[in-house]
Simulated assay, not measured.
Amino acid sequence: MGQEQQAISAGGSTLPAETVEAIIATAHRLADAARIETLRLFRSPELSPLNKAATGFDPVTEADRASERAMRAILGAERPDDAILGEEYGPSPGTSGLTWVLDPIDGTRAFMAGAPSWGVLIGVTDGQGPIYGIVDQPHLGERFEGGFGRALLTGRQDSTPLGARRGVALAQATLMSTYPEVGSPDEHKAFQRVATQARLVRYGLDCYAYALLAAGHVDLVIEAGLQSYDVVAPIAVVQAAGGVVTDWNGGPAHQGGRIIAAGSPELHAEALELLQAQLSAD
């Protein structure tokens, strides 16, 4: 069968092989463009963050905005029929049934602090959920990708397959979350019920925690209060690496909210049962 006749299934879609190749190539061009824009201002005295929240502190920088503008420009030229959802510039409609979900800097607070745990998130969804994603860390030169049969970490020197760690019970697990508070007081109590039984708990890596899970270094990531642009790309990467990602009810997680990602179905079930038991008790 010639390549022009082949098709690849992903999510709820079956796409021609040439379409899949075009999506992957475009996604990498987006990541390359975002690297240029983010590294231009990373650890720069010209960063000048602004607060976009009416109350509290929700920072945005010119690096966030320039990164998303650069990615949108490429999509406008190469994928004009696809929809876009970006953190900084919102939704743009499309007709193809595919949506590019962009977080130009996931971890802006880390970016402001000069910490290399932030990343650029590029996800693609069909009508059912994520079908492909990239978690890119420009400063470290690490690019994690997953979907369409690919699960790969590409560094500055070489590429290695991704694979979530299996055979780990909660008592031996490494658990990560971005904030110790983990959402509302009830959500925090549910998280703590899991955390007290894990071997190691660490905080603060934003999207990089999901990348480390896909690479087999972290076993669980549990968070709450997320948006779709925070999770679509990490979900695609983790699932491609053999992991499991759901909401705290065990359902689809790509709309955001409460997220639990695990390296194996068994660990996911063990942690999810504790989350649900605590929420039911409150």
Rank of each mutant, 00 (worst) to 15 (best):
A195N: 01
I131P: 01
N51H: 10
I222C: 07
L47K: 03
G242K: 01
V238Q: 04
A31N: 09
A73E: 15
L175V: 11
V221I: 15
Y203D: 10
G133I: 06
C207Y: 04
L212I: 04
R40I: 00
A241K: 05
G147W: 06
M1C: 00
V218C: 13
A198S: 14
D186S: 13
Q5K: 10
G183Y: 10
V201E: 09
A214L: 07
L15G: 01
A195P: 03
L50E: 15
V244F: 05
F144E: 02
Y203K: 02
L267T: 04
A34R: 04
R199S: 13
H139K: 01
A211H: 02
T61K: 00
E273H: 13
A214K: 09
Y229V: 13
F144W: 14
L39M: 15
R43H: 02
H254P: 00
P265G: 09
T196C: 01
T14N: 12
T125G: 00
H217N: 11
A34M: 14
I260E: 09
A281W: 06
A269R: 14
V232K: 03
A25M: 04
E181T: 13
H268V: 09
V245N: 01
P91R: 14
G147F: 03
S44N: 10
D219T: 07
V20I: 11
M1G: 12
E37S: 12
F42W: 15
G76I: 02
G129Y: 11
G141H: 11
G97P: 09
L279D: 09
E37T: 12
A83L: 08
